[in-house]
C-alpha cells in the first residue's frame, strides 16, 4: 500500500477516569504498523496523560504511562502538547514524562518526542492533517 496519509490523534481526556486515553494509545500502537505519517496532539485534559510519576497500585488499574515511552520505537515521534492547556493546568514540560526517540538516520541521536506548541502553531499542524481520530 503506497498511500501515506497524515493521521492525527487528538487526546483531550485524562487517563484512568475514562478509558479513552488507554484505548487511543492502543490505536496508535496498531496504527504504527501501517507506516503512515502519525502525529499525536495533547489538548485540554489530554496533557494529564503525559504526567510523570503515575502510580496506579492504589486504584487497581493498569498503569499504561510507560507505553508512551515505547512510542519512539514504533516511529511515533511527534507528540505535540498545547502550551495553553499546560499553562491553564499549572504545568510545565518538566511535569511531563521525558519521552525520547532515536534517529537511525543520524547515528541514533536521541531526540525529544514531546514538543510544546502554542494553539496557533497547533492549529496550523491540525489543518494539514488527512485523518483526524479524536478520543
Amino acid at each position: 500500500m503506497s498511500t501515506i496519509k497524515k493521521f492525527f490523534y487528538v487526546n483531550r481526556k485524562a487517563p484512568y477516569g475514562t478509558v479513552y486515553a488507554l484505548e487511543s494509545l492502543e490505536v496508535v500502537l496498531i496504527g504504527a504498523a501501517f507506516e503512515q505519517d502519525v502525529t499525536l496532539a495533547f489538548i485540554d485534559d489530554g496533557v494529564y496523560q503525559l504526567m510523570k510519576n503515575q502510580s496506579t497500585a492504589g486504584i487497581g488499574m493498569k498503569n499504561f504511562s510507560p507505553t508512551y515511552k515505547a512510542l519512539g520505537d514504533y516511529d511515533v515521534t511527534k507528540l505535540y502538547v498545547e502550551k495553553e492547556s499546560l499553562e491553564a493546568r499549572g504545568l510545565t514540560i518538566d511535569d511531563l514524562m521525558d519521552l525520547k526517540w532515536e534517529d537511525e538516520d543520524d547515528d541514533w541521536a536521541e531526540n525529544d518526542s514531546i514538543r510544546v506548541v502554542t494553539s496557533a502553531e497547533l492549529a496550523d499542524i491540525m489543518s494539514e492533517q488527512d485523518v483526524v481520530l479524536s478520543f
Partner: peptide, 11 residues
C-alpha cells in the same frame, strides 16, 4: 476484527 481495520478505513 482488529484495530487495523480502522486504520485501513482512514487510509
Amino acid at each position: 476484527s482488529g484495530l487495523g481495520q480502522l486504520i485501513e478505513a482512514g487510509i
